[in-house]
Amino acid sequence: MKEGVPVTFRTEVPARESSSPREERIRVEVKGLQAWYGSSRALHGIDLAIPDQAITAIIGPSGCGKSTFIRCLNRMHEEIPAARVEGHVLLDGVDIYQPGVDPVAVRRTVGMVFQRPTPFPTMSIFDNVAAGLRLAGIRSRRTLEEKVERSLQQSALWDEVKDRLRSPATALSGGQQQRLVIARALAVDPEVLLLDEPTSALDPAASSRIEDLLVQLKEKYTIVIVTHNMQQAARIADRTAFFLNGELIEYDLSARLFTQPSDPRTEAYITGRFG
């Protein structure tokens, strides 16, 4: 895809698999996004419209810029020394890169979950989920308890941990820790959830619980997931974007991209002929 050409959804796509034919609302609009590490450019002008209440998957070979891309969606990329961003990321129409926008506030609205579960090791399960809330200044015991329970319910972990909320988070299994981290991200009421290969360190059963969880969560959130696992993208993502060498090659409904990709490079990648 050439720089500066906006990605538009095709109109002749097959019927949506979702049962509710709701009006699609664009939540995050990326325009001409370029990302740099020093003098090396990792993203070459990405245009991508991410719909609300849907899962959007980013796939592509290692080094294609997919992790860099989602790190630009909550201003985490610029935390790396000498890294910088050009272009626009509009969240509900407001550019998160415009002057005066607080990156910390952006990260509260756009939560992120990483490949390895990252619970705070010295904290209990409860305190892990409450951490972001406390950071936001919430002190009320009752509010904290309510929000922690709700977040753990949402991340499908509540039943497994409700009797041991004071136990250290590190006592949980890898899959549970990852759901805990998702609960922590949800606790601060984000609108967008970014996940960077959230199941690559998990076994198939734990991965499949996370996948189910994401499908439930998309009813309320905008979800963007970077994954190396194409089957995972095919299973859970409404739309999939294929990145290669810092460029967006193809973006379409997953049902179409995985059966009839329109670009030969997408075809070659998803059929395992390179990458």
Binding site: F258, T259, Q260, P261, T266, E267, I270, T271, G272
Partner: peptide, 9 residues
């Protein structure tokens, strides 16, 4: 093999 695209077709 979980084939995709032309292989799947």
């Amino acid at each position: 093999q979980q084939p995709m695209a032309v292989d799947l077709r």
